[in-house]
Amino acid sequence: MGFKLLSKLLVYLTASIMAIASPLAFSVDSSGEYPTVSEIPVGEVRLYQIADGVWSHIATQSFDGAVYPSNGLIVRDGDELLLIDTAWGAKNTAALLAEIEKQIGLPVTRAVSTHFHDDRVGGVDVLRAAGVATYASPSTRRLAEVEGNEIPTHSLEGLSSSGDAVRFGPVELFYPGAAHSTDNLIVYVPSASVLYGGCAIYELSRTSAGNVADADLAEWPTSIERIQQHYPEAQFVIPGHGLPGGLDLLKHTTNVVKAHTNRSVVE
């Protein structure tokens, strides 16, 4: 069995187990497998329904001669939608809004960016022009300005110390501490036991640490421990890039980060 097929099978099995364990909360999309990078042309966006009122959005972007996937989250909030992270750029984010209108038909009224990198804030200006209120932590807003990236308009308070959590509509926002970046936030959907790890969490097929220019490698494993301790009931975990899975993604990420750190020390 090929690795790609095995990865998709694991996603399907995880979703099936969740649907059985929580039949009222989960209505997993039966329309197909989780979209992969090879299936999404740059400039297009796919939506994948995880649970009743919960979707991931998947886009792709060219970077350094390669094409990478990027995940975000959409959560229903009454007759409105909360968006977590842009679709990595203005063109993708405009396509995301169009796809949401086509498939869901509810307005996106608020959006949260989970850290300051372009795959999370690139497209904020498109959201703002569409009347979406954009939010991020003060740290993310400051770092985005320093980096020359787009800056969300509103500040999220109460997320300055490791372990801080605040309720934001249908989700809980959690600051686990520094990891992929010093400002990275985690998003949890309690009604569906869905954990969105953003770039602080890796997919299972990833074996290298990737972009760690703004990471705190020493603190990252401790931050992941905080996530595990705060959300032990999480059933569906979405990484910032690639295929979702279960809580095993947290341990896998820790292993990859520690291996990278150990290699760096040896070198």
Score class of each variant (00 low, 15 high):
171 V>E: 01
15 A>F: 05
187 V>K: 01
208 S>A: 10
204 L>S: 12
199 C>L: 03
119 D>R: 01
252 H>N: 14
7 S>M: 02
143 L>G: 03
86 T>Q: 00
26 F>D: 06
168 F>V: 09
58 I>T: 06
75 V>Y: 08
101 E>Q: 12
105 G>T: 08
129 A>C: 10
181 S>W: 01
18 M>G: 08
158 G>N: 08
45 V>K: 14
247 L>P: 02
95 A>R: 09
133 A>I: 00
18 M>T: 04
198 G>L: 03
15 A>T: 02
29 D>S: 05
29 D>A: 06
219 E>W: 09
141 R>T: 02
63 F>E: 07
199 C>V: 02
101 E>C: 08
101 E>H: 13
254 T>Y: 04
190 P>F: 15
155 S>L: 00
126 V>W: 11
20 I>A: 05
234 A>D: 15
103 Q>S: 13
167 R>C: 08
167 R>V: 04
188 Y>H: 08
49 Q>T: 07
21 A>D: 11
266 V>R: 06
231 Y>R: 11
73 L>Y: 01
61 Q>Y: 05
38 S>E: 07
243 L>D: 07
89 G>Q: 15
130 A>M: 15
50 I>A: 10
166 V>F: 06
130 A>V: 09
148 G>Q: 12
84 I>C: 11
114 T>H: 00
144 A>Y: 02
181 S>D: 02
1 M>V: 09
255 N>H: 03
237 V>Q: 03
94 A>Y: 14
147 E>Q: 00
208 S>F: 14
247 L>V: 05
121 V>M: 09
216 D>F: 11
66 A>P: 04
35 P>E: 08
191 S>F: 11
32 G>H: 04
71 N>M: 02
146 V>K: 14
7 S>N: 01
100 I>H: 00
27 S>I: 05
197 G>S: 10
114 T>E: 00
155 S>P: 12
80 E>I: 10
68 Y>H: 11
239 P>D: 12
88 W>Q: 00
70 S>G: 08
75 V>W: 02
104 I>M: 09
244 P>C: 13
161 S>L: 05
2 G>V: 08
196 Y>A: 13
112 V>N: 00
90 A>M: 15
172 E>I: 15
169 G>C: 02
132 V>K: 10
15 A>G: 07
188 Y>K: 14
31 S>V: 15
3 F>T: 05
197 G>F: 14
32 G>E: 06
190 P>D: 15
59 A>H: 07
249 L>W: 05
232 P>A: 06
255 N>S: 02
174 F>V: 11
175 Y>A: 09
138 P>G: 04
143 L>Q: 14
214 D>S: 08
30 S>W: 13
212 V>E: 07
42 V>E: 11
105 G>I: 15
175 Y>H: 06
87 A>Y: 00
78 G>T: 07
161 S>Y: 04
69 P>C: 08
222 T>C: 12
207 T>Q: 14
197 G>T: 10
226 R>S: 07
171 V>Y: 02
42 V>S: 05
212 V>P: 09
253 T>Q: 12
114 T>V: 00
107 P>V: 11
248 D>C: 06
136 A>R: 04
107 P>I: 15
228 Q>S: 13
33 E>L: 10
178 A>R: 07
250 L>M: 10
28 V>A: 06
265 V>I: 04
203 E>C: 02
237 V>T: 13
80 E>H: 13
90 A>L: 06
102 K>T: 13
114 T>C: 00
217 L>H: 01
203 E>L: 00
220 W>S: 14
263 R>L: 04
134 T>D: 12
155 S>K: 15
190 P>C: 01
256 V>S: 10
187 V>S: 13
99 E>R: 09
262 N>W: 10
89 G>R: 09
7 S>H: 02
49 Q>Y: 02
162 S>R: 07
41 P>A: 03
246 G>N: 06
196 Y>F: 06
107 P>H: 00
76 R>C: 05
146 V>I: 02
144 A>R: 10
1 M>S: 06
155 S>T: 09
13 L>M: 02
58 I>Q: 07
44 E>S: 06
256 V>N: 06
259 A>T: 03
245 G>C: 13
253 T>S: 13
249 L>T: 14
209 A>D: 09
49 Q>F: 13
139 S>A: 15
15 A>K: 09
259 A>Y: 10
232 P>Y: 10
41 P>T: 06
40 I>Y: 15
201 I>D: 08
83 L>N: 07
81 L>S: 10
262 N>M: 09
120 R>Q: 06
163 G>L: 10
194 V>T: 03
244 P>D: 06
82 L>K: 02
267 E>V: 07
171 V>F: 01
3 F>Q: 13
153 T>A: 08
188 Y>D: 14
107 P>R: 12
120 R>M: 02
123 G>F: 00
133 A>V: 11
97 L>T: 01
151 I>W: 09
119 D>H: 00
231 Y>E: 05
143 L>T: 09
72 G>K: 01
53 G>P: 13
38 S>M: 10
52 D>E: 05
46 R>C: 09
70 S>Q: 11
89 G>E: 12
252 H>Y: 11
133 A>P: 05
9 L>H: 09
210 G>I: 15
173 L>M: 07
112 V>I: 05
221 P>K: 11
245 G>F: 12
74 I>Y: 01
188 Y>G: 12
4 K>T: 06
254 T>L: 06
196 Y>P: 01
240 G>K: 01
71 N>I: 05
62 S>L: 09
60 T>V: 10
28 V>G: 09
206 R>K: 14
245 G>V: 06
62 S>N: 14
79 D>R: 13
209 A>C: 12
158 G>P: 14
102 K>E: 05
218 A>P: 07
34 Y>D: 06
181 S>R: 02
248 D>G: 07
177 G>I: 15
262 N>V: 11
210 G>F: 15
20 I>M: 01
151 I>A: 04
154 H>W: 10
119 D>G: 01
105 G>Y: 10
122 G>N: 03
199 C>S: 02
5 L>R: 12
140 T>Q: 01
14 T>A: 12
33 E>V: 07
221 P>D: 13
261 T>M: 08
178 A>M: 04
150 E>C: 00
180 H>L: 01
76 R>H: 08
104 I>T: 08
176 P>H: 01
217 L>K: 11
211 N>L: 09
258 K>M: 13
156 L>C: 02
135 Y>E: 02
121 V>H: 15
93 T>E: 05
117 H>M: 00
115 H>V: 00
198 G>A: 06
39 E>G: 07
20 I>Q: 12
129 A>I: 13
25 A>D: 03
168 F>T: 06
196 Y>L: 08
93 T>S: 13
253 T>K: 03
68 Y>P: 11
72 G>C: 08
28 V>L: 05
56 S>Q: 02
219 E>H: 09
114 T>P: 00
254 T>M: 06
61 Q>G: 04
36 T>L: 04
210 G>K: 12
144 A>L: 03
39 E>R: 07
43 G>C: 13
257 V>W: 08
183 D>M: 00
131 G>N: 04
7 S>V: 11
90 A>N: 04
89 G>A: 11
59 A>K: 03
30 S>V: 04
88 W>H: 02
180 H>V: 00
260 H>F: 15
192 A>D: 03
8 K>G: 06
26 F>Q: 10
58 I>S: 07
208 S>M: 11
39 E>H: 06
135 Y>S: 15
229 Q>I: 06
50 I>W: 12
81 L>E: 00
43 G>V: 04
102 K>Q: 12
189 V>T: 09
33 E>F: 10
19 A>S: 03
31 S>W: 08
228 Q>A: 07
90 A>H: 14
227 I>A: 08
233 E>Q: 07
111 A>M: 07
71 N>V: 05
37 V>R: 08
28 V>F: 12
3 F>I: 03
144 A>T: 08
43 G>A: 07
171 V>P: 01
150 E>V: 11
149 N>S: 13
107 P>A: 11
99 E>G: 12
239 P>L: 06
264 S>N: 15
3 F>Y: 02
145 E>Y: 12
39 E>N: 15
262 N>G: 08
225 E>I: 00
69 P>Y: 07
27 S>P: 09
242 G>R: 07
120 R>S: 08
229 Q>S: 02
207 T>V: 10
199 C>G: 10
94 A>I: 10
21 A>W: 12
248 D>P: 15
188 Y>V: 12
22 S>L: 06
78 G>E: 10
93 T>H: 00
248 D>N: 01
142 R>H: 01
18 M>V: 06
216 D>T: 05
223 S>N: 14
222 T>Q: 13
247 L>N: 04
91 K>E: 14
159 L>D: 13
193 S>F: 05
265 V>Q: 03
176 P>N: 07
84 I>P: 00
36 T>V: 06
181 S>N: 09
199 C>M: 01
161 S>T: 06
56 S>T: 09
7 S>W: 07
76 R>N: 04
